[in-house]
Simulated scan of single mutants.
Amino acid sequence: MRWKTFGIGLLLAGAGLTSTAMAADWPQSSIQWVVPYPAGGGSDVIARLVAKQLETTLGQSLVVENKPGAATIIGATYVANAKPDGYTVGTADSGTLAYNVSLYRSLQYDPSAFTYVGGLARFPLMLAVPQGSPYKTLADLLAAARAEPEKLTASSAGSGSPHHLALEMFEQLTDTKITHVPYKGAAPAIQDLLGGQVDMSFVDSAAALSNIKAGKLRVLGVATPARIDLLPDVPTMAEAGVKNFQAYAWQGMVGPKGMDAQASQRMSQVLMQALQDPAIAQRIRDMGVEPMPMTSEQFRSFAERERSEWAGVIQRAGIRLD
């Protein structure tokens, strides 16, 4: 009996060693990185930039696949349904993890069920007007908005986008009514802002940076806790008189529920290293974006706080997209 027990123990120990060895060998093949946006946009560029660095560290290729549509729901659902073996991960952003659960009555994925790998980047949001606008300061714009409710118009990248929800939070904090004009993407929203078809817009730093540098847009305030390096002379919203207003379009990496623990831990580690690499971090900053390195637990906690905060904004605004 003792020899039988000893033999079973050896078998179990051997199985454990085999399992550990297999996990230690991850990855043994290419990894799919799903981006829920079209190729060429900010999210896609960041994924491809970081993926190249991860390939060097992991010794395997990371294949970026774009699965855009339905407010990131198509890409998110694909990742949620993938085999949790560590060979499928995805970009998940503020819409995926914080907004959609309040905007839609039912989702094909559960934002809390993902394996949270780590943070990627955040895009500061800022209130901009055309260069020829009569509003020189945030105080000017607020005075006009309060004098004639709903007369001012604001473009956004679409209903339920970070730009739209930043506008809703702004209205709630300033007790103003501004007419929302949604577009299909940031580019047309900015184009009509440049042309003066709308009065204002909350824009993200990556999409609007070239027009800001060219002097075609005037930024009245940034929705960040401190001034940003790209626009050191532009006040924060708090400095301009709107307290407790911070808004970013942010994103991180997730995997399916129950993703292999060794794979998720390794990916989290190398992702943090990549974002802290000075050359990679600088290339992200050059896009007008801030690196957002976070551990898996930090990223999960951050997403949960954002989900709770924006649920209140969405509920007060009465927004539903289905």
Rank of each mutant, 00 (worst) to 15 (best):
R227D: 07
A207Q: 12
G119S: 05
A303S: 15
M294C: 07
M1T: 12
L54G: 05
I284W: 01
M169H: 10
A263P: 06
S106I: 09
K184Y: 11
P278M: 07
P293A: 09
M259V: 08
V34P: 01
L11R: 04
K243V: 08
L107V: 09
T57Y: 08
G41V: 08
S210P: 03
G252H: 04
L125D: 01
Y104F: 15
P162D: 02
V35S: 04
Q60N: 12
L321G: 02
L209H: 11
I319F: 06
K4E: 11
P291W: 02
S156K: 02
P36D: 04
L58Y: 08
L103G: 02
A23R: 11
A71T: 09
S61D: 14
S133F: 01
L231G: 00
A279T: 14
L173R: 13
I46C: 07
S94I: 15
S61W: 02
W250E: 03
W250A: 04
Q60H: 13
Q298G: 15
L193V: 03
S296N: 13
T96V: 06
I46L: 14
E150V: 05
T72V: 05
D44C: 00
S205Y: 06
R48M: 07
G7F: 10
R218S: 10
F170G: 05
A144Y: 00
A15M: 14
A121G: 01
